[in-house]
């Protein structure tokens, strides 16, 4: 992970305020349940969760960059490492493992064994198509887009559907050139 992690691990710094994970877990559950009542199609719910995540990611990245003691990532590999080791730790207090890189280094997996979103959760028969944690995909996509990386993010393994871990597949589609929305002072 090279020089991107300073000795004072931001994830355990007291500057980051914390709340009880059960409040978080149950609130997320309440959101998913509302969506399931509001939308008939499970696919719609997945999509809506992704959108919510995107909105969160777009704002969360500021919070992350402000608090995490990291330097600019030089490539996608480094970005993935920072997400797994610093990002997940800072917000959800768990760490992910980066694995299964594609040969061109454009695609990798984030593997989660612990996931505070799913405590107490079991999918009923009627919700088998639900990607319960889909919000995380949105968050990653939204956050990365704000730092000029267009990505495709989806779950390929889900413990709620009987897999042994959670696996999020993250694919870098393009590095967008930085655009400045403002003009220089004339």
């Amino acid at each position: 992970m090279r020089a991107s992690l300073r000795p004072s691990d931001p994830a355990v710094s007291p500057a980051i305020e914390r709340v009880n994970a059960e409040l978080f877990t149950l609130t997320y559950g309440a959101i998913v349940r509302q969506l399931l009542t509001d939308y008939e199609e499970i696919e719609e719910v997945n999509k809506q969760l992704d959108t919510m995540g995107y909105n969160i990611g777009a704002r969360l990245i500021d919070d992350f960059l402000a608090k995490a003691n990291i330097t600019k990532c030089t490539d996608f590999r480094e970005t993935a490492d920072v997400i797994a080791k610093v990002g997940f730790k800072m917000f959800l207090n768990v760490t992910a493992t980066v694995a299964n890189w594609s040969a061109d280094s454009m695609e990798c997996s984030l593997i989660l064994e612990d996931n505070p979103l799913v405590d107490f959760v079991e999918l009923p028969e009627t919700c088998q198509g639900l990607s319960y944690c889909n919000i995380l995909c949105g968050v990653l996509r939204g956050a990365l887009e704000m730092v000029s990386m267009r990505t495709e993010v989806k779950f390929v393994k889900d413990m709620l559907r009987g897999d042994d871990v959670f696996e999020i597949r993250m694919k870098l589609l393009e590095q967008m050139p930085e655009e400045y929305p403002y003009k220089n002072d004339e």
């Binding site: 980051i16 305020e17 914390r18 709340v19 009880n20 994970a21 059960e22 409040l23 978080f24 609130t27 997320y28 959101i31 919510m52 909105n55 969160i56 704002r59 969360l60 919070d63 800072m90 917000f91 959800l92 207090n93 505070p116 919000i135």
Partner: peptide
């Protein structure tokens, strides 16, 4: 177990 206040605040805002 705990998560960051930001994580909860963002979620609640959504």
């Amino acid at each position: 177990a705990e998560v960051s206040l930001s994580a909860f605040a963002f979620l609640f805002s959504e």
